[in-house]
Design a protein around this nucleic acid. Structure first.
Lengths: 154, 154
DNA sequence: GTCCCGGTACTCGGATACTCACTGTCCGAGTACGTTCGG
DNA sequence: CCGAACGTACTCGGACAGTGAGTATCCGAGTACCGGGAC
């Protein structure tokens, strides 16, 4: 039960793109050296964000990745799910209906109580991340950070 | 980002023990056939609950596992953490302080905004699971389930 | 009948293989720019 | 001087190995019960 380390990378990458002027572009190599990360692997992960429709990529010189939407329309949940997938933490295999103690179907009309609570907790996690946008992240940065990021990446 | 499948197993095992009369005992083999699970592997996982202080184990004939505390004093969070560990989903490696764009220390007085939100979401997950006890699970079972479990496992 | 002893069967507990996702790396396809050559 | 064609360098994109957690299994250590035998 752990997010891939690449989740941290793409979150910071997305945050950096959000700090540039609207439509600003940065290549994977540039972002990698900005955070001292393995360039090839970072590029591989950024592709996932393109597939998810969060980034758009352009090849060739002066190319790179840019946000596909306004920073206020991209939530942290979308970024995390682009990397980690949308499959739930807890999958109920209905083991209550298996084995010697298999419960009869008429006692299984409603979802298993354990699954219900586990899913509710997961919904709370997702809801909390869906509330925060990249714009919120940029607005919360200490004074001067955004200007410096633009100078270094722009 | 997925709970081990064994989490479902021990949650159901704990729920079953909570349905027995107070102090009721069931062996790993008995629980395994009750849910049609690999006996040896289930036993290995139940050991983790013993190490966490949630179960107590007795060897020999008529031995097995039993709850170490009253069902109302055991939360789902404790059970999950006994299997999955307490390490956070998201670990901030402070990559904002690495590489070409390393932020100066005076801009890093407070925690990284991304880490703050990710941790808040995780806290929401944990809090939701900490609210639910095994007693709540037993109370939420359909009519007749507890009696049947006692007959089969008792 | 009562007590003691031994054997047995059952339990947990830890040590040992196997699988898959995450991590890490590489090379190929495609494009925009800068340069150069001809008119 | 102007335009177009060419070459180059840079970009993403997908295909190919290495590693650690989770999965699965087995056998050994220890204990409580059950039966038999002696008193």
């Amino acid at each position: 039960m752990k997010l891939p380390e690449s989740a941290e990378w793409v979150l910071h990458a997305a945050g950096s793109l959000a700090q540039l002027e609207p439509g600003g572009t940065a290549s994977a190599a540039r972002l990698a050296e900005h955070f001292d990360l393995p360039p090839a692997y970072l590029a591989k992960q950024l592709q996932a964000l393109v597939r998810a429709g969060l980034f758009t990529a352009t090849t060739g010189p002066r190319g790179g990745f840019r946000l596909a939407r306004h920073p206020g329309d991209i939530t942290l949940l979308e970024i995390v799910e682009a990397i980690d997938g949308t499959s739930p933490f807890y999958t109920c295999n209905e083991i209550r209906q298996q084995g010697r103690g298999a419960a009869p179907p008429e006692q299984c009309r409603q979802m298993c109580g354990l699954a219900r609570h586990l899913h509710a907790a997961e919904d709370a996690w997702r809801a909390r991340l869906a509330e925060v946008t990249l714009e919120d992240i940029v607005d919360g940065l200490p004074r001067g950070v955004q200007r410096r990021t633009r100078e270094l990446l722009g």
